[in-house]
């Protein structure tokens, strides 16, 4: 069982690290000072959650590896994050939408985790749910403002929806590892979270005057370790120091 649990926790740990990395790229470059503060704030939440999750993965594995070994020292085919979180920031519309899509999934996920049977994950879920609820609110507000702002912002928001919506299906994907965890009551059933996610997105999109596209060709692959080309560039930054100075501690 611990193999299934390890692999599944690793998926969500990677989601949080990689999204945190992307969001952190805004720090100092945001459209206004308030967002120069809220972007690193969200990155801190996400990377903080990733740390708790990697620490748990290391503990489940029991081979003496650390959070940093998992975060920094794997090849790109070994990362299990969904593709949505690795997509480039592009512009502010893409960034807040990507965050909303992810947070609208993680909020009911962590809520459902409260009643699962793994003590460590239950503990993580209580802290994480408060943080992610803020991400839904903050990014939801921005999606509404941009969608119902000016003609230019509406067009950018619309483009972001077209670009990112195909990546949302992967949030609900269940592989064999996750299925085993769901069966044992360790993990929430991702498919069962779909109505909550859809309701959040519909509600925000209605206010933002955006249409929810039909997903005819969903993009997936991250859970199997098949990533987009941009991901390798991300890793080359993330891993640079650890690769350049093997074995050093910082």
């Amino acid at each position: 069982m611990s193999e299934h649990l390890l692999n599944t926790v690793l998926q969500i740990a990677d989601d949080h690290l990689i999204l945190g990395h992307r969001v952190s790229e805004w720090c100092g470059h945001a459209p206004m000072l308030e967002e120069d503060l809220s972007m690193p704030n969200m990155a801190l939440d996400l990377i903080g959650q990733a740390r708790s999750l990697y620490t748990y993965v290391a503990q489940l594995e029991g081979k003496g590896r650390t959070e940093d070994d998992f975060a920094y020292l794997r090849g790109d085919r070994e990362y299990r994050n969904c593709l949505l979180v690795e997509r480039n920031n592009e512009d502010f519309a893409h960034t807040v939408l990507r965050q909303l899509y992810f947070a609208a999934f993680m909020k009911p996920f962590w809520e459902a985790m409260h009643t699962c049977s793994d003590e460590t994950l239950v503990n993580i879920s209580h802290k994480a749910v408060k943080e992610i609820a803020y991400h839904v609110r903050h990014c939801g507000e921005w999606v509404i403002r941009l969608g119902d702002g000016t003609a230019i912002s509406a067009e950018r928001m619309h483009d972001a929806v077209l670009a990112l919506h195909p990546y949302t299906a992967e949030l609900f994907e269940i592989d064999n590892n996750r299925q085993q965890c769901i069966n044992s009551g360790l993990f929430p059933d991702s498919q069962a979270l779909q109505p909550a996610w859809t309701s959040t997105i519909n509600q925000i999109f209605t206010q933002a005057k955006l249409a929810v596209p039909r997903d005819e060709y969903p993009q997936t692959g991250g859970r199997k370790g098949l990533h987009t080309e941009d991901f390798g560039i991300l890793l080359s930054q993330l891993q640079y120091m650890q690769r350049a100075y093997p074995g050093a501690s910082w």
Partner: peptide, 18 residues
């Protein structure tokens, strides 16, 4: 920030810049 050599240093740096 994106190249910080450990997660501990990364969050400390993010918090500092914030």
């Amino acid at each position: 920030i994106t190249r910080a050599p450990s997660l501990r240093r990364k969050v400390a740096l993010l918090a500092k810049v914030q």
